[in-house]
């Protein structure tokens, strides 16, 4: 049977993708960030996941205000990097796992999660920057990717509790998929950042640290945090961290924290990263 073996959370700051694409990884500003992922790149080389369920949010790339799904699962065979205004990032096409994605969609809908099934969707930096951070610049991504796009742009986003429970539904779905697959789930976005208004540039290291601690030790408690606490403490775009709870919900209650990295700043954001392994 398929099995979720590990969860990864990471920021998906677009400027990090640009820095990599433009060959700036050794510059003083960027080097500490890329160095922070060296462990992770080695780790994932050994882990060799077959499929990654990649939880992220679209940033007005694939979805305008015409249509805003709360949870959209990408069931296509492939997904192209989106043109976000400067041409698509020079990264490989994202290959999906259509069969597993549909299986998860069906299982989750029958478990009363109201998924939107998507067969045609470009994927923006929210999805591709985490891949770049974890895999560098390969010719092809080394595994299949199932995009799971969560609305955190138009209020209200799903509650933390709903995200956590969707993770559990995903775990159940994966475990009922009859193929020997090593599956990882990633949560992306965050950590503290605010991109708008006079409060832009807000960073809250204490909050972010507590969030990482909670993710490991008390995810149920963390899942109860209301949206306003994210925004007040971690900035208006800090709400993205609600997506990390989907990742956490998909893991066992008992996990090992394998690695953690935190750095300020990347452009406007705090970069946070954690690797959790199922016991």
């Amino acid at each position: 049977m398929a099995k979720i073996t590990a969860g990864v959370a990471t920021s998906h700051v677009p400027a990090i993708g640009a820095a990599l694409d433009l060959g700036k990884t050794q510059e003083d500003y960027w080097k500490p960030i890329f160095d922070g992922y060296e462990f992770s790149k080695e780790w994932i080389k050994n882990e060799k996941p077959d499929v990654i369920i990649l939880v992220y949010n679209d940033h007005a790339s694939a979805f305008s205000l015409d249509l805003i799904p709360t949870f959209a699962i990408g069931c296509a065979e492939e997904f192209q990097p989106a043109d976000e205004g400067w041409g698509p990032r020079p990264v490989p096409t994202v290959k999906g796992h259509s069969e597993l994605a549909w299986h998860i969609a069906q299982s989750a809908i029958l478990d009363e999660f109201d998924m939107t099934i998507v067969n045609n969707m470009d994927v923006d930096h929210g999805l591709t920057v985490p891949l770049s951070l974890m895999f560098g610049q390969p010719e092809e991504w080394p595994c299949k990717i199932i995009p799971l796009a969560v609305n955190v742009v138009q209020y209200p986003p799903p509650t933390g509790n709903r995200c956590y429970n969707l993770g559990k539904a995903i775990r159940k779905a994966v475990e009922s998929f009859d193929a020997d697959l090593n599956v990882q789930i990633w949560g992306t976005g965050g950590m503290s950042h605010q991109l708008q208004g006079p409060r832009a540039g807000l960073i809250n290291k204490e909050f972010d640290t507590a969030f990482l601690d909670g993710l490991t030790k008390d995810p149920q408690g963390l899942a109860k945090m209301p949206h306003i606490d994210y925004v007040r403490e971690a900035g208006s775009e800090g709400i993205e961290m609600v997506m990390w709870l989907i990742m956490r919900g998909a893991l066992n209650d008992d996990i090992d924290e394998r690695y953690r990295f935190y750095h300020v700043p990347a452009s406007n954001c705090a970069v946070g990263h954690i690797i959790l392994e199922n016991k």
Binding site: E99, H103, Q106
Partner: peptide
């Protein structure tokens, strides 16, 4: 072989 196909629901 489809796994979805194999589920009791679909069968």
């Amino acid at each position: 072989m489809s796994n979805a196909k194999n589920s009791a629901y679909n069968d």
